[in-house]
Amino acid sequence: MEAELRTKTGAALLDIKTLSEKGRFEGYASTFGGEPDSYGDIIAPGAYTETLAEHAARGTMPKMFWQHDPNEPIGKWTSAQEDEKGLLVSGQLNMGVQRAREAYELLKAGDIDGLSIGYRIRGYEVDEDSDVWTLTKLDLREVSVVSIGANEHATVASVKSGRRALELADKLKAGERLTEREFEDLLKGSFGLSKAQAERAARLHLKGLDPDGRGDPGDAADGLAFLQALAG
């Protein structure tokens, strides 16, 4: 089960350092440590080391999109590197593209000043008491120029749900058993089932695995097979 692509925007990311008349600019796409951001996350120093090395080996860079829309590339990133503060990126807007010219004017006027990363989680640690995630290893796919999302709380809820599903899928892969509640959470987070649908599917599956009907989640291998069948 491949980890879903996630995005992250928050006050800590709004740091455009320079902007030239030709559309060249530099800024921090994310910052390390400190207080948890609006998603309840802390990004650890070194989180980008592996993914940046992979891009360098392939001769590629993360894509530059407008508002995380892959149908609206607006230029290219020319460099990305970690320093003591965070992920510093330099880019060139394609001034022959209308959307890039609009982005330039909005950045110049200060109407928008956001950079946001699109990534998959490769490594993380969770503080169970505070529900703060420390992201230790990320697969960086793109960095977008963005404005603040209109419905931040809905976005945060969606991301948290996806993360919970990722954590539970990792338990199954490790051969651990899930409780009925955990199995329901996984169905809701990974497959978009409603609460009632997830409860019914979990009961049916668990009953099939356990002849005495007590709700034992059964073998992890059976759980993975069931999820793979759901995914088609």
Rank of each mutant, 00 (worst) to 15 (best):
V126F: 13
D111N: 07
T78C: 09
V143T: 11
K63N: 14
F65K: 07
E102V: 11
G114Q: 08
Q67F: 04
A109W: 00
W66G: 00
Q67R: 13
E128C: 12
Y104K: 14
E82V: 01
Y119K: 09
V97N: 10
I74Y: 01
M95R: 08
I112C: 00
D113I: 01
E125Q: 15
L93Y: 06
D111T: 01
E142T: 03
E72W: 06
L87C: 10
E84D: 15
S130K: 13
L87E: 09
R141I: 05
H68L: 07
G96T: 12
L138H: 04
E84G: 04
S79N: 14
N94S: 10
A103E: 02
W77K: 08
V132F: 06
V145G: 06
S79R: 11
S147V: 06
L88W: 03
S144A: 15
Y119D: 12
S144K: 10
L138P: 08
G75Q: 02
S90V: 13
K85T: 14
D139A: 11
L140G: 07
T134F: 08
L93H: 02
R141V: 13
S130F: 09
G110F: 00
R122M: 10
L93I: 02
S147R: 12
A109M: 01
L115H: 03
E72F: 09
Y104R: 11
Y119E: 07
W77R: 01
G114T: 06
R122S: 03
N94E: 11
D131A: 13
V97W: 04
I117K: 11
L140E: 09
D129T: 14
T136D: 07
G114H: 10
S130L: 08
V146I: 14
F65T: 01
E84P: 06
E72G: 03
D139I: 06
V143N: 03
D111C: 05
L140W: 07
L115E: 05
L87K: 08
G110I: 01
D131G: 07
D127E: 12
S116I: 09
L107I: 06
G96Y: 04
D83M: 10
Y124T: 06
E102N: 15
Q67P: 00
A80L: 14
L115R: 08
E82S: 12
